[in-house]
């Protein structure tokens, strides 16, 4: 690094990125906070400021409870399952030699795919009359179920799809972490007669703990924002006309886009902003808790 400061030149190099980021990242960030406290905002003008009204309106929305419920279920069920399964797959995949490359490619495939296209494929797997799942259930004499027809079974389907969609990235990160662990630790453990399961709990997991912490944080944040999987599986309208609030698959992000789509109604944009701030605060709190836990658990 040169000692001499080159301020003007540096800012010139930064200009294109900073200009775009100012318009599309920094300004929106502040504006979101501004919008959330405006009264009856519509088409660029507002009638004044309010303190908590927009937040109250969001919370009073009959869909809000459902959105929180759906989001929480997705977060607290799919994340632990997919992290655990991905960890097991990665460790086992890392331990084999034959067919490792082929299996690895298959496990990585979902990473690049399109959430909408695959969601449609899943919707057809869960189809009552023509779906694969009911076909497989019929092999063990279980009657067909209209998986996407009720909230309970629909949620099960959504969770299956969410776990499926989350595996690839986690396996990729875990595998690259596992491959960076010095093999000598495993040789040392072998010489010391360490049972396989203890090697996993006492050596692999601690040495992989930075990856596990990273994956846990990012998956929590990611599934708090669940929306595209739902659009893929259930269709573009997360609040189809005629569904009862407690039967919909609306999530917090779904709620934000619902409000935003009614931007011509006074106050709706502010509600979207308020909801997005609530989402931000929630994910931030989770990240902080996660990091605090990791700091105690993660080694190095």
């Amino acid at each position: 690094m040169l000692e001499k400061q080159s301020n003007v030149k540096a800012w010139l190099y930064l200009l294109p990125a900073l200009a775009l980021l100012s318009v599309f990242t920094f300004y929106p960030l502040f504006n979101a906070f501004l919008l959330a406290f405006l009264k009856d905002y519509v088409y660029g003008s507002a009638t004044g400021f309010v303190f908590m009204d927009n937040f109250k309106n969001v919370i009073a929305d009959p869909n809000f409870n459902q959105a929180v419920k759906n989001t929480s279920i997705i977060v607290f069920v799919s994340v632990p399952i997919s992290v655990t399964v991905a960890l097991m797959i990665s460790v086992l995949l890392n331990s084999i030699k034959k067919f490792q490359g082929l299996l690895q490619t298959i496990f990585f495939l979902p990473y690049v795919t399109n959430a909408i296209a695959i969601g449609m494929a899943f919707a057809f797997i869960f189809n009552e009359s023509y779906g694969l799942l009911n076909l497989m259930l019929s092999w063990v004499n279980i009657d067909p179920v209209d998986w996407l027809g009720s909230w309970e079974t629909g949620m099960v389907s959504l969770l299956i799809y969410t776990v499926w969609g989350g595996l690839a990235f986690k396996i990729m990160v875990f595998l690259s972490g596992l491959q960076s662990i010095d093999k000598q630790y495993y040789d040392a453990a072998r010489v010391d007669a360490t049972p396989k399961f203890r090697v996993f709990t006492r050596i692999t997991v601690p040495l992989l703990s930075p990856m596990i912490a990273y994956i846990t944080v990012t998956s929590f944040i990611g599934s708090f924002k669940a929306y595209r999987t739902i659009v893929g599986l259930f269709g573009p309208t997360v609040l189809p006309a005629g569904t009862l609030p407690d039967e919909s698959f609306i999530t917090i992000v779904g709620l934000i886009y619902e409000s935003l789509s009614k931007s011509d109604t006074p106050g709706m944009v502010s509600e979207a902003a308020a909801a997005s701030i609530l989402l931000f605060i929630t994910t931030l709190a989770f990240t902080i808790v996660n990091m605090w836990v990791s700091k105690k658990r993660v080694h190095f």
């Binding site: 010095d182 000598q184 630790y185 040789d187 040392a188 010489v191 006492r202 050596i203 601690p206 040495l207 703990s209 080694h299 190095f300």
Partner: peptide
């Protein structure tokens, strides 16, 4: 046997 590895292979988290 007891084996001492070239770069010791001490478990860093223990």
């Amino acid at each position: 046997i007891g084996l001492v590895f070239q770069n010791y292979a001490l478990y860093p988290h223990m």
